[in-house]
Amino acid sequence: MDLPDPVALAIPAFILLMAAEMAWIWRRGRTAGHYEWRDTLTSLLMGFGSTIAGLLFAGMLVGSALFVSQFRLVDLGWGWWVFLLCFLADDLAYYAFHRAAHRVRWFWASHVVHHSSQHYNLSTALRQTWTGTLSLSFVFSLPLFLVFDPAMVFFCSGVNLVYQFWIHTESVKTMPRWFEFIFNTPSHHRVHHATNPRCLDRNYAGMLIIWDRMFGTFEPEPANEPLRYGIVRNLGSFNPLWVAAHEWTGIAQDVWHAPDWRARWNYIAQPPGWSHDGSRLTSEEIRAGVAPNRAEARADRDTAPPLRPA
C-alpha cells in the first residue's frame, strides 16, 4: 500500500501554526521571551538539517527494517484495527526510545538537541537532531517490523512525530480532563522540557501519556512553580553545528581522559551526568537534592564547574 509521508504534508501547517502562535502571544502583550528570533532560527535550521540527515541515512533505517521484516511472524493485512494496533505499538516503542534517550548518554547525545532551547514554543518542536539515525536510535522500533508492514510502521511513526508538534506551546494551558488522562498534551510535555528538579526525566510520552502513568514516570505540571526550559547546563550558543555536536564532543573528551576502560564505557552507556570521580550530578541526584555539604566537597576538588548533568 502507498502511504503518504505525514511530516512532508504537515510542513505548511507547521508554518501557519507558528505564525498564528506568534500573533497570539504578541496580541496578548507578552512581547518578551516567548519567541526569540535567533533561537527560532536555530530551531528551524536544526529541523531542516534533520530532514536532510534523514534522507542521507535513510538507507540504514530502511535496510534494517527490510532485513527484520524478512522474518515477519504474521500478515495482519491493512484493516483499521491493524493501523490502531500499529499506532499503539509504535507509541510504546517511542516511549522506550525516549526513555533510553534520557538515560543512556549515547542516545542523549542525539536527543539533547531537542532540549537545547531555553524557549518553549512551536518552533522548539522542530529543533530536531541530525544524528538520530546514525546513533541507531531506530533499534527500538525494529521489533515492530516482525508484525507490521514497514510502510505502515513508517506512516505511524510519521503521524506520531506530527502529533508532537502542537504540544510544544505555552499558549494552551490544559485540555479537558479525559484528554489529559490519555493523551500527551502541552501541559505534560512542558514538564518534560523543564529543568526544575522534579521535572527531570519525566513524561517521556509520544502521543499517549498512559505509558508514563503505567511505568511510573509521570509528573503533573506544578501549579505554583514557574517552569524553566532547556538543559541543566545550557549551551549559551545559537550555533547549529555546536547544538548538533556538543554532547558528542563531550563524550569524546570524557572517553579520551577516562582513567580506564570501565570508565570509558560508562561515559557512553551511563546516564548523562555520570562521572568516574563523582564530580558531576546526574538528574537523579538533582531530583533527590544532594546534600549541600557533598556538593561543596565536590566543588573543592574539582577543576571544572562541578555541575554538568543532562
Binding site: 508554518i15 505564525a19 506568534m22 502571544i25 512581547t31 527560532t40
Partner: peptide, 17 residues
C-alpha cells in the same frame, strides 16, 4: 517551501519580538 517558511517565521519573530 521549508527555506521560505524559515525566512518568513524568523522575520516575523524578529519584527514582533
Amino acid at each position: 517551501l521549508s527555506v521560505g517558511g524559515i525566512a518568513l517565521i524568523v522575520t516575523l519573530a524578529w519584527l514582533l519580538f
